[in-house]
Amino acid sequence: MSQRVTNLQVFRDFALILLLYAIYAVVIVAVYDWQSFTGDDPPMWPIYGWAGSLAAILIWYVMAEWVVRPNAGNGTFRVLWFVLLAAVICCEAFVAWMELTEESGQSNAYPWLHVVGGIGTYYVASVLFSPLYAKYAIWPASRIRRW
């Protein structure tokens, strides 16, 4: 029974993380004009930025749930989280820089979206849907999470 409870919780967290990133994807599509994503030359850099942030949160979840010991302490969890945050920042900065410099034929570039969206979504997902023993590791989860 206990294993089933754990699986259910992991499934729920993954579903909510994907929902959050689906909302972020909708924002990207809305900002970039959805018709541009249906054409022959869709804007790829926002997709890379979105995918980089999603990959980071999934790595965080998998590591905190199955790799790091549950009693490793919040310090250990935070080290891992900040390493991944740094990776997300680099990824989003690279995406923004590439978007600003590349002759992609796009009329607009939205570097703020990658910084706010990519990094922000990673942060919000970490605060709200981190695994059990890391759930209070990221401020202000201890004030918010009641589940």
């Binding site: 206990s2 754990t6 199955w66 010991r69 059990l132 023993y133």
Partner: peptide, 11 residues
């Protein structure tokens, strides 16, 4: 399984 014990201890 210690990890399973940790998880179930919060059930």
């Amino acid at each position: 399984n210690l990890r399973a014990i940790f998880h179930s201890a919060t059930a």
